[in-house]
């Protein structure tokens, strides 16, 4: 049962969940919007990528790795863009133009 990919996959998923938990705690404890944004965009993307990598190790078929990679790509892009837009809406000269 305990082959190398399954151990590796479980470990990666555990690490990813750890990152997500840190992001959640940070979101809860940090005082202002910009530092919260800092936690959410980076730790969330890292956590999700690790979980997806772990899941890819566990399944190991190309048919499941492709959608997982697409998930990671889309969340990474949208996380970065949304983070930028939210930050832009609160910086003094970023509102318009």
């Amino acid at each position: 049962m305990t082959t190398l990919p399954s151990v590796l996959g479980t470990g990666l998923i555990a690490a990813g969940v750890g990152f997500l938990a840190v992001a959640a705690i940070g979101f809860w404890r940090l005082p202002d919007l910009l530092s919260r944004l800092h936690v959410l965009t980076k730790a969330d993307t890292a956590g999700l990528s690790l979980v997806a990598l772990g899941a890819a190790c566990l399944t190991g078929t190309p048919a499941s790795i492709l959608p997982l990679g697409l998930c990671v790509l889309l969340t990474a892009i949208s996380g970065a863009t949304v983070g930028h837009l939210v930050a832009r809406s609160v910086t003094p000269r970023g509102g318009r133009s």
């Binding site: 892009i77 863009t81 930028h84 837009l85 318009r96």
Partner: peptide, 11 residues
């Protein structure tokens, strides 16, 4: 749409 800046274009 208000112009959202350069960053939304690649998105």
């Amino acid at each position: 749409p208000v112009s959202l800046g350069e960053m939304t274009l690649p998105f």
